[in-house]
């Protein structure tokens, strides 16, 4: 058994305090104190989560991630840096997206025109060019978390937030 595994059962697990006076709760509490000093949640991340409340939008429909090449694709031998292929679905609408180091490409299915923005956080939105067939492209790859906001006719659809 390697050190990566959990240690073997030593038969003393039944009670919080074993016969030898070991106090697990106390040690856990000490770790909690140490984490607060040595590995605290950065203040700016706490603030970003606070600010994320504006992303709560009941008017918009969420297009759920139904395919992610990072999880669902079978690796192709010899392909060093394959593009990230993503598929989102909202009702009858499918959004296919391909993210590479060079940018972002995509297609709405069934083909239709739409206004599309790339969201990068609570305050960042960048419009994309879309053709009449619902094909869109950007030569700036998304960095960090991103989502696409689509306006088709009367609908607003936002893809699930993902990390590029």
């Amino acid at each position: 058994m390697s050190d990566d595994d959990f240690p073997p059962d030593d038969g003393l697990d039944a009670t919080a305090e074993g016969a030898d006076g070991f106090d697990a709760d106390l040690l856990e509490q000490e770790l909690r104190g140490a984490a607060a000093v040595l590995d605290p949640l950065p203040a700016e991340l706490l603030q970003l989560a606070m600010d994320a409340y504006v992303l709560h939008d009941l008017e918009a429909r969420v297009a759920e991630l139904t395919f992610d090449s990072l999880v669902d694709a079978i690796p192709v031998r010899g392909v060093e840096d394959p593009p990230r292929m993503l598929t989102f679905q909202a009702g009858a609408l499918t959004v296919d997206v391909e993210v590479t180091g060079d940018g972002l490409l995509g297609q709405l299915l069934p083909p239709q025109t739409a206004r599309i923005e790339v969201l990068g956080g609570p305050a960042a939105a960048r419009p994309l060019t879309v053709d009449g067939m619902g094909r869109f492209a950007s030569d700036t790859p998304p960095t960090g978390p991103f989502a696409l906001r689509l306006r088709t006719g009367r609908d607003v659809i936002v893809t699930e937030w993902l990390r590029a």
Binding site: D39, P42, L45, L48, A49, A52, Y53, V54, L55, H56, D57, L58, V62, G121, P122, G144, P145, A147, V158, E160, W161, L162, R163
Partner: peptide
């Protein structure tokens, strides 16, 4: 932190989780 990502990746994961939670809040 338990997954030992780099700081940059960890920060992005943290943000992604909260953005998605806000997005899914009513659902």
């Amino acid at each position: 932190r338990a997954h030992r990502l780099s700081d940059a990746d960890g920060h992005e994961v943290y943000q992604t989780v909260w953005f998605r939670f806000a997005q899914h809040l009513g659902r």
